[in-house]
Design a protein around this nucleic acid. Structure first.
Lengths: 211, 211
DNA sequence: GACGATTGACCGACCAGTCAGTTATTCTGG
DNA sequence: CCAGAATAACTGACTGGTCGGTCAATCGTC
């Protein structure tokens, strides 16, 4: 059974997007050229503008694809756990996969934020990303609140803060002198601080310190 | 008393940096040209490379100047209050001055993070920025802990989280469809969530303030 | 041989950085 | 105090190179 022409075309597009992602992570949106992307994908330069209307169109689709796959993986990670605390832990593990993947993703992510802060079509994509995150995060928070494990007031605001802690810690990590060495520090801190924020001053499991 | 030549030169440099800041906030680091900066400063293009070694040198100095003035203003805001809770409020007020200033600053800030994530000299500047923030934030947290108002465990980690909430919320705000309208929402949320994080689930006994 | 996929030479716009030349300021000796 | 020399500040045309986008030619497949 032959794959349809449409499917093949979609695969070619995807291959270009993946190549673009890798090269954007390295060099940054603004210094990536169509030649770079084509070279990484192993095709000639002309082909990139055969499959995409323009460089901007390519990047818009790149970020659209990225956020869809991120959303999907977050939903997946969350659905496979029952306990809200475990769901948070699963999110942390997903978002901090490894130093190299992390750096690649967040470099591209920051570039994207810079674009979203200035160009309307990118802003819309960014909005979609945060909306998706907020829905996932809020569901976790609401569940935690129902079970009495989370002591936050407002699930929407808590979801927003949750995501802010992820992003903000990542920004800090990216400026660390030795990202490899401090990676686990940040991952652990992220988990600890998120749970501190959600469950209140007392750690959920261990009894130990009390103010 | 005539100003020294060195002072005059420094003023010229500063005028160029200020012009560069405004134009970077609008267009982003990578699409700003030396012509743009010169035009904004009301001088000819050649002058920018007369006062700076290169475009990159100019931007490095721009970000250095920015973080110094931010640090100074944060220290100032913090020192003028006694109560740790009030210090946090002062920081929030400082960081959220107005929608337009906010957007200008954080657009430039994001660009800077993108640069810092990839180019060593910029990474160092970013590290200096976060180190300064951490020192200020940690001092506040330690004071709050001594007074028993803050229920966090570790002052360094709490300072890191504090800053993450600032930055992370700002990223979200920048993708809002109507930044003007949601500005106060985010400022209030930032204050509320920071204090929730620091003082625990119970809102602090009111100090004559309205939420 | 028809047609979509692919190539890469090419074009024009853009831009960092250079530099020869111009103007403003300071210095010097008469 | 001044002429004019020396120096500093400044200008903008120019250069060399880059890159997004185009397109005529070629390839591969049915």
């Amino acid at each position: 059974m032959a794959r349809s022409a449409a499917t093949q075309e979609a695969e070619k597009r995807l291959a270009l997007l993946k190549a673009a992602f890798r090269v954007v992570a390295e060099k940054g949106f603004s210094s990536v050229t169509l030649d770079d992307i084509a070279a990484r994908a192993g095709v000639s330069k002309g082909i990139t503008l055969y499959y995409f209307d323009s460089k901007e169109d390519l990047f818009r689709q790149l970020f659209g694809w990225l956020i869809d796959s991120i959303h999907a993986r977050m939903k997946d990670a969350v659905e496979s756990r029952q306990d809200p605390v475990e769901k948070v832990r699963a999110l942390v593990a997903l978002i901090f996969p490894s130093p190299s993947k992390n750096r690649a993703f967040f470099r591209a992510y920051i570039d994207f934020c810079g674009l979203a802060a200035r160009k309307e079509p990118f802003r819309e994509v960014g909005e979609r990303f945060y909306r998706g995150c907020r829905d996932i995060d809020r569901a976790i928070v609401e569940e935690g609140m129902r079970q009495g494990a989370f002591v936050v007031r407002d699930p929407v605001e808590a979801a927003s803060t949750l995501r802010a802690i992820f992003d903000g810690l990542m920004l800090q990590w990216l400026t660390e002198p030795e990202p490899e060495a401090s990676f686990e520090t940040y991952r652990d801190r992220c988990e600890r601080e998120l749970l501190h924020y959600l469950t209140g001053p007392m750690p959920p499991r261990e009894k130990g310190r009390k103010p």
